[in-house]
């Protein structure tokens, strides 16, 4: 069951918060507003899908510092920066740190909504990948040690005869393991199997980065 996405608005200006929430709700997007980065951090549930609309200049933790904190903690929530005064070096810094977008106020509201949709899509995609990889992980977990060995050799491009030589077993046994592991992994072809392994690897990489994924 897909959770509805939330746009988190963090801005110290009350009018900005109110108007952004109004704008987002006008296109039926859920919005939650916070007056400071700390308020956001205290309330935010990283397991919920969403994106962040972040004011650059705020008292307390500013936008860049909040971004730094999120990146450091391994969160991948897409961030759209809103800046009151276009400042190229700051924008560059924010983008290099992984921001999705850097908008200078006042921005076209259509463009903002477009970027918000893109950010939510980005977040959804990250989460889809993670879920798909979780399923693959579960399938991989039920393979026997021998099947895993065969799988790795298959994926690295070895044919049955070579695998049999490497593992010192008969080609017939290799064939058996191979057919079992294909079934367990729900793979219908070798390229399909390779894609699954890549996906698992990627996800493990991401999971190392983001403990909440």
């Amino acid at each position: 069951m897909e959770q509805p996405s939330t746009v988190y608005v963090v801005d110290d200006d009350a009018a900005m918060r109110d108007s952004l929430c109004w704008l987002l709700s006008s296109v039926s997007l859920r919005a939650k507003a916070y007056a400071s980065a700390d308020d956001f951090l205290a309330d935010w549930d990283p397991s919920m899908p969403g994106c962040l609309l972040l004011d650059l200049r705020m008292p307390g933790l500013n936008g860049l510092e909040l971004q730094e904190r999120l990146v450091k903690d391994g969160h991948q929530i897409p961030i759209i920066f809103l800046s009151g005064h276009g400042d190229v070096p700051t924008a560059v810094r924010a983008m290099q740190a992984g921001a999705t977008e850097f908008l200078t106020k006042p921005f076209s509201e259509r463009f903002l909504l477009e970027r918000v949709q893109a950010a939510l899509e980005q977040d959804a995609q990250i989460r889809r990948h993670r879920r798909a990889a979780e399923v693959l992980e579960a399938r991989y977990a039920v393979l026997t040690p021998r099947e895993r060995e065969v799988l790795h050799l298959v994926v690295s491009g070895k044919v049955n005869r070579e695998i049999a030589e490497i593992l010192c077993i008969s080609p017939k046994t290799v064939e058996l393991h191979r057919s079992n592991l294909m079934k367990k992994m729900h793979a219908d072809s070798v390229p399909n199997l390779v894609a699954m392994c890549l996906s698992i690897d990627e996800c493990r990489e991401a999971a190392r980065m983001d403990p909440t994924l």
Binding site: A15, S26, K105, E109
Partner: peptide
């Protein structure tokens, strides 16, 4: 300072 209310106006009217 000026961009702040201007951005809010754009958002309100856009919505």
């Amino acid at each position: 300072e000026v961009n702040q209310p201007l951005a809010a106006i754009v958002n309100y009217s856009g919505g």
